[in-house]
């Protein structure tokens, strides 16, 4: 398996008390999969993502990528954060070049690669703008371009569209889906938006809190390009509602 999470446990100490954020989580992910971690607030999605991305370690169990234990973030796997993490003093172009600079890519080549990815996210006109001059959605696009520009193997995203309005969100979902499939990336995507998860994922990992664990893993057997109103789509969505105990039973009393 490409990414292998075995019996991952994460405990935090809050005010002297032990708190289990991840309880025996096991999950295998194949190369090129689009995985969504879905669940209500506090179920450990970010904790799990951070552990796979190497920003944090698990207390117990193991996480390996291509057989190697994850100990720290690697430039082969890039994380996109909810609050973008763009450098405000750099232009869009320079932001996208950031990772390439660290990889010591020559200047000309850097510019070319940056240009390509800025174009891909539709921001060519704004290459010389600073992040402050862009809307939230545009800023997140820059972060996406910056992440994909270094040609990573895996892209981690923690509620990347959480701060965006519904329409911008849908556009960015299409963008991410297209780039990830075109470039054959493995994506691990955290969200608590059920529809978003169904729209994007090959598999959805449904998590529940107290303690954070995997409730169910759902194979989304829908065609790649999905219609949100399609009955198959709605069926998958309903199934997740059910798993999360959010589906209301129809009232039994009828008024005749």
């Amino acid at each position: 398996m490409y990414i292998e999470i075995k019996n991952a446990v994460k405990t935090f100490y809050q005010k002297g008390k032990e708190f289990t954020a991840l309880d025996n989580v096991s999950l295998s992910i194949e190369k090129g999969e689009f995985i969504c971690l879905l669940g209500p607030s506090g179920c450990g999605k970010s904790t799990l993502l951070n552990a796979i991305a190497g920003f944090d370690t698990v207390s117990n169990g193991s996480i390996t990528i291509e057989g190697k234990e994850v100990k720290e973030p690697s430039r082969k796997n890039v994380t996109i954060f909810q609050n973008y993490g763009l450098f405000p003093w750099r232009t869009v172009e320079k932001n996208v070049e950031l990772g390439l600079e660290a990889k010591k890519v020559p200047k000309n080549e850097r510019k070319e690669i940056a240009k390509k990815y800025i174009e891909m996210v539709g921001l060519s006109k704004f290459a010389q703008a600073h992040p402050k001059q862009l809307s939230g959605g545009m800023q997140q696009r820059v972060a996406i371009a910056r992440a994909f520009a270094v040609n990573p193997d895996i892209v981690f995203m923690d509620e990347p569209f959480g701060a965006l309005d519904a329409i911008t969100r849908m556009k960015l979902q299409d963008d991410v889906l297209k780039i990830s499939k075109d470039e054959n990336k493995t994506i691990i995507f955290v969200t608590h938006d059920i529809e978003e998860a169904v729209y994007l994922s090959d598999r959805i990992v449904v998590m529940t809190p107290n303690p954070g664990k995997i409730k169910k893993i759902i194979d989304v057997k829908l065609s790649r390009y999905r219609e949100r109103t399609n009955s198959d789509f709605v069926a998958v969505r309903d199934k997740i509602f059910e798993i999360l105990n959010m589906k209301h039973e129809p009232d039994i009393e009828y008024i005749i």
């Binding site: 991305a53 720290e72 796997n77 890039v78 994380t79 954060f81 600079e101 660290a102």
Partner: peptide, 25 residues
Amino acid sequence: DIYFKVSKNFGIKQPHILWKVVLPT
């Protein structure tokens, strides 16, 4: 902290972190 996370992720090392991240931020 996000600036340090991003730098770490992209493999930016000292002294570049100081000049490219800390000072400008």
